[in-house]
Design a protein around this nucleic acid. Sequence first.
DNA 1: GCAAATTAATGATTTATTCAAG
DNA 2: CTTGAATAAATCATTAATTTGC
Lengths: 186, 186
Amino acid sequence: MTSVPVAVTTGGGGSRWCPTPEQVMLLEGMYRGGLKTPTATQIQQITSRLSIYGKIQGKNVFYWFQNHKARDRQKLRKKLMALYHQHRLYPTTHHHPFLPLHPVGGIEDVSKCKPVMNNWKVDDLPSDQPCKLMCDCPLMTMMMMDHHGTTPYCTRVPPKTLQLFPLTTTDLKQDDAHHSTTSSKP
Amino acid sequence: MTSVPVAVTTGGGGSRWCPTPEQVMLLEGMYRGGLKTPTATQIQQITSRLSIYGKIQGKNVFYWFQNHKARDRQKLRKKLMALYHQHRLYPTTHHHPFLPLHPVGGIEDVSKCKPVMNNWKVDDLPSDQPCKLMCDCPLMTMMMMDHHGTTPYCTRVPPKTLQLFPLTTTDLKQDDAHHSTTSSKP
DNA sequence: GCAAATTAATGATTTATTCAAG
DNA sequence: CTTGAATAAATCATTAATTTGC
């Protein structure tokens, strides 16, 4: 598809590298494929390969990987920070800053949650107070929330006006404004 | 034709969740709205909301987002794969369309790299990035080798005509080692 | 037209990575 | 170097579409 070789002004001036879409795609692919810190040799090869799509130098590749990895970490760190701060809000344990105090008693089980999940015995979730622990883990914590079987409809959450859509930051903001990882757009 | 959109005949012992059209619509809406990995809190809310359209549990919502996101990526990956094939970049693989490039033993170079860097002359360094950055990186040895012409030191890798990417492990392996594979050193 | 058989979608599990902390 | 938490990839399994022969 006629990828327009968005060329950098290569020759003399030395403006900065402007990767073509193909180059970016390939780089991201390699990164996701597991290549986080390419060796010199690999950088060489990559550079050579990508050069057919446009001007590129080894340092560009090098920096790209550096930056990408760094930003990945940054993103993750942010998430952890948010999580940590939220958890600071309640009693500190002198063990781990967060986590397995008790209520789930099943974090371990989660790993072998396979058979468990189907007939999970949840003695009703704290209906008065949703377990704060769970609140932040998008993970499967909440799988245990609802009981499978008799209760046909999930009506555990009090029917107050909560809006789901993250489009407006009104309500959700309170709970977890931090969720978003800033969306890698598809 | 006229497929009756009934669904949800989950009456007795429905083995798996069967989302109603409304539920699917709403979920897709949220996803498109930017919600990719809802937190437990959000999942709760969503579940509660969607339960008015039919039986649903938190884990269903959780799984739905997991799967949707995963299959989104999958689709995208296929597209990229097509692109690669179009450019005949890389033989088909079942796993990652992008290189499963193995780390290889570039680590050896690292040890060499550090002393080298001390007296490395940076002619091609980005001006906004201090040398410090490079020092962090073990393997940038060759980064400057593609710098036009004046590369003083290691230019043993031919600037073109090298086959890249993990064609077979053979190449890469001996790559670092030594000798004459097309050593064209100007 | 209708079911049995086959294929495509998609819900649910399991396995492998990843980063950071101890 | 190991471990924990969380995730994404890969896989299994079941439901819905569809094809096909009668």
